[in-house]
Amino acid sequence: MTAVTSPGRWQPIEKQVWDTIITPCDCCGQVVATRLWVVEVDGQDQRFCGESCEELYRSHVVPRRRARGAP
């Protein structure tokens, strides 16, 4: 199980009118429209669409990645 090293925080997405790039969730890949759920996992900030994706990331993505020998 991955250790939680910091609580998550909501971070608004600040965009200028010329910003046309869309921000995806680091777990599911969905569009994040206005704010990101940012959590530090294993020393790196991960940006999710919400807490449910953080749970999915910890319970599924990380163990699966480790099982395949990926960092």
């Binding site: 046309t20 790039i21 869309i22 995806p24 777990c27 599911c28 890949g29 999915l56 599924h60 993505v61």
Partner: peptide, 14 residues
């Protein structure tokens, strides 16, 4: 629940 990594053929990025 769907996981589609951005930047792949299943989740194109701009």
């Amino acid at each position: 629940h769907i996981i589609a990594p951005p930047g792949t053929v299943v989740n194109v990025v701009y």
